[in-house]
Nucleic acid binder design. Sequence first.
RNA 1: GGGCUCAUAGCUCAAUGGUAGAGCAUCGGACUCUUAAUCCGCAGGUUCCAGGUUCGAGUCCUGGUGGGCCCA
Length: 527
Amino acid sequence: MRARERPEGHAEGTGMYEFEEKRLEKLDAMRAQGLAVYPHGLRVTHSTAQVEALIGGRDAAALGEDSTEVVLAGRLMFKNEMGKAGFARVQDSEGRLQLYIRKNDVGDDTFNDVWKKLDLGDHVWARGRLMLTKSGEPSVHVSELRLAAKCIASLPDKWKGLTDPEYRNRHRYVDLFVNPESREAFVRRSRVVRAVRDFFEARGFFEVETPMLQPIPGGAVARPFVTHHNALDMPLYMRIAPELFLKRLVVGGMEKVFELNRNFRNEGVSTRHNPEFTMLEFYQAYATWEDLMDMTEALLGEVARKVTGGGAVAYADHSIDFGQPFRRWRMSEAISEKTGLSAEAVADPAAMRAFWIEGHPKDAKNPKLPSTVGKWYEWLFDEYVEEHLIQPTFITHFPAEISPLSRRSEAEPEVAERFELFVAGMELGNGFNELNDPQDQQARFLAQVAARDGGDDEAMYFDADYIKALSFGMPPTAGEGIGIDRLVMLLTGNTSIRDVVLFPALRPDRGGAAEAEAAPQPGVTQG
RNA sequence: GGGCUCAUAGCUCAAUGGUAGAGCAUCGGACUCUUAAUCCGCAGGUUCCAGGUUCGAGUCCUGGUGGGCCCA
């Protein structure tokens, strides 16, 4: 075999290079002996968890009389060689299980050419019988052992694991098999999504998929990603919300409809924001916003119960209970209580301005300060109220001014029949009676266009086709959106959205690019 | 975008401005029930990058890159 060329970027004596070099040598040696290093067609009969269940509580003597054979496979996470015998611990998607290998049982060839050459991280395949070790650990006494797939890279510290958040996020494939809590978070995420779908299916809702590429981005107040369609030679926007399309479907007669899918917002990245995130939106004709609050309590109660087994959920320093009715708190009252402003002051932009400047003297000449009640509500709420809403709380009666898609209250036209749900200081949901008056909607869009022209680049665009849809008549409808990533954060105890998004947005990794260019090329090294 | 902070071996971490170390992993050896196996031995470094200060920089300074937390 000719000497392998040292890849560019790996200086003489570089640890990483030599590590992989050694493993590649083993791989070449196995190939030379005619042993497959990436075989296909291997079958298993049991998972690690199933083998453990088979063993049950039986003692060593009982297992000795059981001739059941199991075939299992997994990644080698632990290897302990003791001369002519050894232990291995393999991990599959359901857990870990120990293997016991003796030279006498597997034969010299397998022992020397397979077992001794196995490296941590390799995928192994084994056949054997059930056993308990002397210390009582459920194990498989191996009669046949094969390499199922070679691992060339080196694994993180087997005891300390992998803690660097950057490495975990950039190399999720390693994080997932090294850190059980990471894996568990994504298993739970899957259960959350399933439980949400089950909830709506059971209530006769219809799941749909509406455009992610939209000619006019709508349905939320946010900056969109823009792209270009070459063949049509037109700009397209990644959706910031599916809302306007879902309501078109209600016009079309889909009276109970939901979508659970990705939205994209071209905004900052933080522990609570990822540029792409998963949103549930649902709409029901002839339901009201109050019905939606009831439904939200039922939904979150059911999802939390199914995913966590019930009871309060530990989150940050809090214990959050989804199991009972949520507080419903009028926005003006919440602001009044948390700021100490009177009910009259909370209706007066000048009074709110004075209060704000008292707390933020540097803003005295800030030209961006709000001038209207609605905008002041946003500012005061974000600053003084939101962080205090720990237990699930519906904030109700939003200003119509900042709710361009919501129906106004007939009794109080300046107020929208709209609520938002807050948990652990985070906005989790947003629901309202849908504005189905096309003339009012047109006026609201025009107000948004004016705001945009005035420099508000988050203001909504005018969507003429949506107005046309409403002109055909949308039945009285209520709709709501719930942020799934944040819900998963709450139900997994993670305070960063990056811990519940498999591949979160990160800046390009220069080091990683260099690594990729310099990587050894296992496929071209055989000589 | 701003503030604070971090970046040293594959991983987890040490190192008063004065010879870059440890544990695990890896490599060689011993061991037929180990549990972070044990024992013996070896090897592994562009201290994130580019400048600067200094007799001397992993350490101090400036700029950059990437991450984390907080704020916007």
